[in-house]
Design a binder for these strands. Structure first.
Lengths: 212, 212
DNA sequence: GTGAATCTCAGGGATTTTCCTGAAAGAAAA
DNA sequence: TTTTCTTTCAGGAAAATCCCTGAGATTCAC
């Protein structure tokens, strides 16, 4: 099974890679941020990608979304520190095949990868099982609160802005024009009802898109 | 070299332990919180303890302080995600022999352990080296506040900026010139080591000056 | 297919931020 | 008292943000 490991904490990433290799997985490469992960995935076409949730540039869910959009048949497992209800739901909706807590033993991740190989979805114990039902029910029913819901692209931009990246830098990272990024930023401000970057940052922190 | 590894993220802890064993260290035990770490250290008398900074019950610095107080000759290395100036200083004052960033490769920790074995202090690259001098000088001299501690006025400005107020508005609120406010804001950015408002907002949230 | 939403990009102009240097007055500490 | 720190303010220049309209492309649902 050919996989890529993505996490911005090199110490964790290297350690984990070693462990996974020992477990018989073929770790093709490591990435330390979301954009790099996408690039590597495109090049190496792995079977699966293990994604840290909180990464610079693009978080785990966004990477999942992007990989799904690109139509590559690459499954992903989100690795995270928090058993956040909302995050789990978003991860699953983005198409992630697994949601594994870092508080769990590495065997948990190994199991998740095996489940994924069988085409199944795996959630760490500690995440309520009815979570899945809840998610699915939500999915089918309706999207009422989606009036000001941010789009995937907008969340991407929001994260980068909140991280302090300049417009020019964001444009380069995402391969867009400066004007496009400005356009997104403006729309974000309108949606989030704020007239400046400070407001965007607070929103991003509040919504867990970045940590302060 | 007999060591204990303490981190509440089991996935990271197990992976790291495996790596350290491979490097020839004798990992006596693992702990998932501060209190457990103390208990284990008392029982097993390791040469060193690798401590995650953010642990339940007692964080890495507190454990270091406690171990020092108990008079056991157990050296510690603090492992953390952030290169926070204040944390580094506190860790060193508590008696830690190393401060290693998780964003660094595992070899960085290995090196830290070797330095520790030689009775030296090790800080991850990325943490300014003069940090040590600064800390020591501070240590000798006095205990009031750190160098880049914000003044009262600066905290005021920081709060208003983080709340999304425009410079002009802040100036009006505080009866100052726009130029003065700009001056304060610039100094804040220099002190907090950031080049834009997003960074200021994150600092303000982190330091509890505003709520996100 | 039609419509709605999203994503992309552009022009332009007012305003703001960012980054320098420099400097004076008052308060606090050495 | 001298020095250091804080606070105040200025000028100027480059860069970025903010705000608006408009518009082609694509995608997705109905």
């Amino acid at each position: 099974m050919r996989i890529i490991v993505a996490d911005d904490h090199t110490m964790f990433r290297h350690s984990l890679t070693m462990l996974l290799k020992r477990e018989g997985f073929d770790v093709l490469a490591e990435a330390s941020d979301g954009v790099e992960t996408i690039a590597l995935a495109l090049r190496l076409k792995p079977d699966a990608v293990v994604l840290d949730m909180n990464m610079p540039n693009l978080n785990g869910v966004e990477v999942t979304r992007e990989l799904a959009r690109l139509g590559l048949n690459i499954r992903t497992i989100i690795l995270t520190m928090f058993e956040d209800d909302v995050s789990v739901r978003e991860a699953l909706r983005a198409g992630a095949c697994g949601y594994v807590l870092k508080t769990q033993a590495p065997t948990d991740l190994v199991q998740a990868l095996h489940e994924l190989d069988q085409g199944r979805i795996y959630l760490s114990p500690g995440i309520t099982n009815n979570m899945v039902d809840v998610c699915l029910r939500r999915d089918e029913s309706s999207d009422e609160e989606s009036s000001d819901a941010l789009t995937s692209r907008e969340r991407q931009i929001l994260q980068l802005v909140a991280e302090g990246k300049a417009t020019k830098e964001i444009a380069r990272l995402l391969n867009l024009t400066v004007k496009t990024v400005e356009s997104h930023r403006s729309r974000l401000m309108r949606k989030l009802d704020t007239g400046n970057i400070a407001g965007l940052v607070r929103h991003a922190v509040r919504q867990g898109i970045i940590r302060a």
